[in-house]
């Protein structure tokens, strides 16, 4: 029997999984305290639902599943309190486009003179990327992270956040405009 492989050993959770769970959370919620709370909630939820663990997946994957659900709950709460900002986003893309909705000269994209098919591997670049992500409004960062870090489809994201697809596209559009422009200023044309 595989009983021994897939049993829960809560006393070893902190040693074995806490840092990995924490890194996963902190990349996604961008706040250390929130990430710590989520880990705590994950362990508590796991301990209170041990009877639901049937050993089909590993203990580690089971804890990750719980954490992912906690993150989505957190995102959903944030999204519902932030959704009103979407109207303003729709109105004012004026940093990027003129009255005729063509690029403003000050916002013209520059060629990054890089191989667009090969990602930059350097730590410094990732630091800048992280900084630029953290400059997005929280709703933009959430939508962008769900889409590109967690590789979800927009339909799923809309369902999880309980937002309309038209709101989703407005937020995504603005997130990309802002992120592109930030990276260009801070890295590619520095």
């Amino acid at each position: 029997m595989t009983q021994t492989e897939n049993t829960l050993k809560p006393k070893e959770w902190v040693k074995n999984y806490s840092d990995t769970l924490y890194r996963f959370a902190v990349l996604r919620v961008n706040d250390e305290e929130t990430a710590k709370d989520l880990i705590q909630e994950t362990f508590l939820a796991a301990l209170r639902n041990t009877e639901r663990f049937r050993g089909e997946i590993s203990e580690k994957n089971w804890l990750f599943t719980i954490l992912k659900n906690k993150i989505i709950d957190h995102y959903r709460k944030k999204a519902s309190s932030l959704i009103s900002e979407v109207d303003q986003l729709m109105e004012s893309a004026s940093e990027y486009f003129d009255e005729e909705d063509h690029w403003k000269e000050s916002a013209y994209p520059n060629d990054w003179k890089t191989d667009y098919k090969a990602p930059v591997e350097s730590e410094e670049f990732h630091e800048i990327l992280n900084k630029c992500l953290n400059k997005l409004s929280e709703l933009m960062r959430i939508v962008f992270t769900m889409k590109y870090l967690d590789e979800k489809e927009s339909d799923e994201i809309c369902k999880e956040l309980q937002i309309s697809s038209s709101n989703y596209w407005v937020v995504m559009h603005r997130a990309k405009l802002q992120l592109r422009s930030c990276l260009e200023k801070k890295w590619f044309t520095k």
Binding site: K36, Y116, P119, F144, Y148, L149
Partner: peptide
């Protein structure tokens, strides 16, 4: 560039760690 961003984001990672105090608190909770 937006296609490039999508590739780049997947490589995002962090080396953050919980402090020993945080870990002790979690252990006590468990």
């Amino acid at each position: 560039q937006s296609r490039y961003l999508a590739i780049e984001i997947k490589h995002l990672h962090t080396n953050a760690e919980l402090s020993s105090t945080d870990k002790t608190n979690l252990e006590q909770l468990i």
